[in-house]
Design a protein around this nucleic acid. Sequence first.
DNA 1: AGGACGTCGCATTTCG
DNA 2: CGAGATGCGA
DNA 3: GTCCT
Length: 331
Amino acid sequence: MSSSMSSPAINADISEMLLELGKHEMNVNQNRFKYQMYRKAAKSVVDHPKRIQSVAEAKGLAGVGAKIALKIMDFVANGSNRQLDRVRQSDTNQSINELLRVSGIGPKLAAKLMADGIDTIDRLRTIADTLTDHQKIGLKYVDEFERKIPREEIQKIETLLTAKMNEFNKNLLLTICGSYRREARESGDIDVLITHRNVTSDQMKFKTNTYLKDSVRSLQKCGLITDRLSLGDTKFMGVCRLSKECPHRRIDIRFLPLDQYFCGILYFTGNDFFNQQMRKHANEMGFTLNEYSLRRLGLTSVPGEPIAITSEKEIFEYIDFPYKEPRDRNF
DNA sequence: AGGACGTCGCATTTCG
DNA sequence: CGAGATGCGA
DNA sequence: GTCCT
């Protein structure tokens, strides 16, 4: 989904090439900075209103330098890109990408598995006993986790979650963020934020609470949560299923103190590019904004104490940034 | 020319 | 055994 | 790989 629908993605093919090269840098070469630069370039390209025709035109785009400009021209002239073709036919690349489908397996382990001759998911199953709990669950649901979640299913999960949480503690509040909150028709996973009316970050500094663990236990008991990838005092990562007819879904639940709840909702609603732009604007207005708080910057750029926030809208008002409904944050 | 590029919670491994 | 480092995901 | 200093 490109940010502006004005001219329907005239450079979409170039953008996809760059994204694929970026993925290769991340997955095979383990270079996340090159990956991010390719992503940035890909976004510039897809937002560019006319077909890229020259090196100069390419280099004018943010994130596109000499090297990527040449790759773009190669692609435009030949309908393909030599490096991309080489990457695609590489057995190593194909194997690593197959292994990376398993949640909990990253570039490091994938490379090690390759060295040990484990180059397919089928072979991975033969050594499943050596995997961590997280990786075993990733393997078990490898196909299900790749299915998109229809909005209607998340709405039902939201209703169920709200009912269960309320039943177990009336002071708990809940918001499902991510692309669901941006009103997407379907989402890749479910990102839930919860807080408690009476819990502050000051309290949590010296005393943790069990609201998250208790919530998770209650949701396991009713059968919604089926597996756990990780669980601490503030973050649960795991698996849920609405009913036996539905696939298993990835779900994250975070517990935040009330004073950080709204910055958290803003942050986890995204998208990434929207957050980036809003944080930049905050800086220009003399603030610093992150997932926890909004703080005014002093003369020496030293952040002051967090500003008290009681709604998401307030954050926009403080930094004089025009309010955008979640559905309009797909930058 | 050379450093920055987001940061952090959790699970696991490694070091002492 | 505990403290720090690493991998991973987001 | 690109940008900034």
